[in-house]
Simulated scan of single mutants.
Amino acid sequence: MEQTLVVIHVRFANDGSVREIGECPSGTNPQDWFNALSRHSANGYESLSGGRGIFRLEPAVIEQVKAAVLSLAT
């Protein structure tokens, strides 16, 4: 059985804060989205060179994290 994963790209500023991140829910700070994904993605993150990184996560996990982040915002 083949597992489908979504790749979320992250770009960091020189100070280590998140500058850009994919799949970020509307109205959510990129750093907060990165923190939420980090808390819910055991081994799904890989750092890359040049101030970049990627999350490889199942679509269901991303939806769960989005729901959790959006429920905190309301």
Score class of each variant (00 low, 15 high):
Ile21Glu: 00
Ser47His: 12
His40Phe: 14
Arg56Val: 02
Glu46Ala: 14
Leu57Pro: 05
Val7Arg: 07
His9Val: 14
Val65Lys: 00
His9Gln: 14
Pro30Val: 02
Phe55Thr: 00
Gln64Pro: 00
Gly27Val: 10
Ser17Ala: 13
Ala60Lys: 08
Ser26Asp: 14
Gly50Asp: 12
Ser41Gln: 06
Asp15Glu: 14
Asp32Cys: 01
Pro30Phe: 05
Arg11Gln: 12
Val6Asn: 04
Ala36Thr: 07
Ser26Val: 12
Glu46Asn: 09
Phe12Asn: 00
Ser26Leu: 12
Phe55Ile: 01
Phe12Glu: 03
Asn35Lys: 05
Ser38Gly: 12
Glu58Thr: 09
Gly50Ile: 02
Ile21Arg: 01
Arg52Glu: 13
Val61Asn: 03
Gly16Trp: 05
Tyr45Val: 10
Ala36Arg: 04
Ala60Gly: 08
Asn35Ser: 10
Pro25Leu: 04
Gln31Tyr: 08
Val18Gln: 06
Val61Gly: 00
Ile54Val: 15
Glu23Met: 11
Pro59His: 10
Gly53His: 10
Arg19Gly: 04
Gly44Leu: 06
Arg52Gln: 15
Gly16Asp: 07
Ala13Glu: 12
Ser26Gln: 11
Ser38Trp: 12
Leu48Cys: 08
Val7Glu: 11
Val18Gly: 03
Ile21Gly: 03
Gln64Lys: 13
Gly50Gln: 11
Ile62Pro: 03
Arg11Met: 09
Asn29Asp: 15
Arg11Trp: 04
Arg11Leu: 08
Ala42Asp: 06
